[in-house]
Write a protein that binds this DNA or RNA. Sequence first.
DNA 1: ATGGTCGCGGAGCGA
Length: 256
Amino acid sequence: MRIATWNVNSVRARLPRFLPWLREAAPDVVCLQETKCRDSEFPREEIEDLGYAVEAYGQKTYNGVAILSRLPIEDVVRGLPGDGDDDERRVIGATVSGCMILCLYVVNGRAVGTERYEHKLEWLDRVRDLVQESYPMEERVILCGDFNITFDDRDVWDPERWRERILCSTPERAALARLTDCGLSDALRKFTDETGIYTWWDYRTRGFGRNQGLRIDHFLMSPPALEACVGVEVDLAARGGEKPSDHAPVIATLQD
DNA sequence: ATGGTCGCGGAGCGA
């Protein structure tokens, strides 16, 4: 099974890039973040025409997640436990081919020390609680998405510039560690310990051309999923060209 | 340059 995660920064604005990519890359499962539209406005037919079932959980203007699958999909869950209808839509989960998948768009947090930053840390602990409660590490469990956190300085193009800033601060990394402490591993690090592998580049600084990026989109896997995982790749071509998202897709391949 | 550029929605906010 090949599974992709991609923060598309509006699924409707990205459609001229997304549909050709989906046709070419053709992953079995695609987890999307920042779809930025209501479920009724999701470009469902165009994606179904390529052979994918569409499960969306979106809202107007902000946030929004979705799971697309060309394999049978079951047990779809929307939101975190306790979320109401007016809460930000950042989580969708499903089971595909025996893999329990959780697609996350983690709170950005704006800047260290702000109210949104504190909310980010609390929100991550709610995800941790959900994983502890409902995702047995004996199963194939895959958390993926835009975590808006770097694991360490290997994930940062200029660690000194980013020191203790948003996406890189110690409390954020500690909150991410509390999640992985449930028994999950950063799947990319099964294959390489190199620096310079990034998934997001700021539009404003035009950082992509100079590879001034951060690795904030991740696959976290339980031991059985990690064992089956034979590769994690960042699709840099999808970040180039006309009207790209500010994130690149990341694709994981699992055997069996 | 505590800047810039996107997307949404039609001004200013979030990222």
